[in-house]
């Protein structure tokens, strides 16, 4: 049995165990990806995101920490319906099985979380796809207006990011 089929088999078993324990969660799409892609997903915070120099800084930090043995990425998970979770192809089957079980726990917690529930109601379950579309819009803007102008807007937007009031509605009028 290939590693991949083995992992799929274990996942099925884990789901049965989860059902026995009464866990309640949206289905999870697991993807087994190469390590460098995983690093990017972890650093960018989304599988597809706009290009920005600040991610480059974090990327190098992460790369250095990994190469010095101070950091190792096991899982990146995105909540939604379905949830998305990334596993590293280089990790052993035992490690990845453990991660699958762990992620199922996350998924159960998220579905019962009121903050998550509120945002699911406002944004829908396919946040990753929406985010990817925004990223593509920024890529188009880069081509149309040039790097300097787009970067100026993004720099300003990222400065405002920590000041967003998450208790208000997702879409607000100005």
């Amino acid at each position: 049995m290939t590693q991949h089929a083995l992992l799929a088999d274990y996942t099925r078993h884990l789901e049965m165990l989860a059902a026995e324990q009464g866990l309640d969660y949206y289905p999870i799409d697991f993807e087994v990806v190469p390590a460098n892609f995983m690093t990017e997903v972890a650093v960018y915070g989304l599988p597809i995101r706009m290009p920005h120099w600040s991610f480059g800084v974090r990327y190098i930090h992460q790369l250095i920490r990994q190469s010095m043995g101070h950091s190792r990425i096991f899982e990146v998970m995105f909540l939604g319906n379905p949830c998305h979770a990334y596993l590293v192809s280089d990790n052993s089957i035992a490690e990845n099985t453990l991660v699958v079980a762990h992620v199922i726990g996350h998924a159960d917690f998220a579905k019962r979380n009121s903050l998550f529930e509120r945002f699911m109601a406002m944004a829908g379950g396919r946040i990753l796809e929406q985010a990817a579309e925004r990223a593509r819009a920024i890529e188009r803007a880069l081509i149309e207006y040039g790097q300097d102008k787009v970067e100026q807007v993004l720099d300003a937007a990222l400065a405002l990011e920590p000041h967003i009031d998450i208790h208000q509605a997702l879409y607000r009028s100005a």
């Binding site: 789901e15 799409d29 697991f30």
Partner: peptide, 11 residues
């Protein structure tokens, strides 16, 4: 009642 999670290899 059992959600069906999937496992795939990435692109």
């Amino acid at each position: 009642m059992n959600p069906h999670s999937t496992v795939s290899t990435g692109s």
